[in-house]
């Protein structure tokens, strides 16, 4: 099966810098995957994302080699507006991605730029609002929304463009845990209902344990680990790099070090508790 995203031997150095931001990146994503990208700040995550949506090289100049192919298009040869139809991008700070004075108008923003007919825009705005549960917010102004609602609006704005890939750059970092969990559940719903491929950068891995199929860990411009969550998170390197290993995974790693092997690592508290309950019962 052909890959939706295919990055080959890709290097990039920002103009004016002598330190490469990305070094020899090889990275493929299949249709329908949910991939988490993690790593300490400054590891190159944002640069990689910018390279996928074409902000690099079209907006940020620099020196690059290798190739980045997204949905069959060579990113360096395709205008951002063309890529925007295929990749939706949600940023960390919702405030800076809502431009208009009403929610519906903001969701229409991308569609207006693509010159879709007006009734098509209307239909899609309503469709996206229903999907994200913000139909009652359609007439609101940005300053009448909470941060969680703003992030949903931003999500609706890109979903309305019907992309096949959705990229989220630390979408929950400004949200409280409850709202963050809600947003992640919503992302999962989009994946399940639309079959959309998802790339998500997150520090709070505990939110993603249940939904992600794969994790890529970056450090100093390189991809250092890439694989299934339960495999990657138990590796020593992951801990040393400073990825935010979820508490229950850290506990299992510690137990294993101490000689208590629980087998395959549990990614949910329920699963871990059940396992421990069995062992504790057998032991007492």
């Amino acid at each position: 099966m052909s890959d939706l995203i295919s990055v080959k031997n890709y290097n990039f150095t920002y103009a004016g810098s002598n330190k490469p931001a990305l070094i020899d990146i090889n990275f493929n994503v299949k249709k329908g995957e949910i991939v988490v990208i993690a790593g300490p700040s400054g590891c190159g995550k944002s640069t990689l994302l910018r390279s996928l949506i074409g902000l690099i090289p079209h907006m940020y100049a620099g020196k690059s080699s290798g190739s980045v192919i997204v949905d069959g298009l060579d990113v360096s040869q395709t205008p951002i507006s063309e890529l925007a139809k295929r990749i939706g991008f949600v940023f960390q700070n919702p405030e800076n991605q809502i431009f208009m004075f009403s929610v519906e108008r903001d969701i229409a923003f991308g569609l207006e730029n693509l010159q879709l007919p007006r009734d098509e825009i209307q239909n899609r705005v309503i469709w996206a609002c229903e999907l994200l549960g913000i139909i009652d917010l359609m007439k609101r102004a940005p300053y009448e929304l909470s941060d969680g609602q703003k992030q949903r609006v931003a999500l609706a704005g890109v979903i309305a463009m019907k992309p096949s890939i959705l990229i989220l750059d630390e979408p929950t970092s400004l949200l409280d845990p409850y709202t963050a969990q809600e947003l992640i559940n919503l992302v999962k719903k989009l994946h399940d209902e639309l079959g959309i491929t998802i790339l998500i950068v997150e520090h709070r891995l505990d939110l993603l344990l249940n939904i992600a199929s794969r994790i890529v860990i970056m450090n100093e411009g390189k991809i250092v680990l890439d694989g299934k969550l339960d495999e990657v998170l138990t590796k020593k390197e992951a801990m040393l790099i400073g990825v935010g290993i979820p508490t229950i995974v850290r506990l299992q790693n510690l137990l294993k070090e101490g000689g208590l092997d629980l087998g395959r690592i549990s990614l949910t508290v329920v699963e871990l508790a059940n396992k421990l309950n069995v062992i504790l019962r057998d032991n007492i």
Partner: peptide
């Protein structure tokens, strides 16, 4: 917890689910 928009820390949740 709900009113405060919190979720339980994983260690608390684990603790609550343990039988011993």
């Amino acid at each position: 917890i709900k009113e405060a928009h919190l979720i339980k820390p994983q260690l608390v949740e684990l603790y609550e689910r343990l039988r011993v």
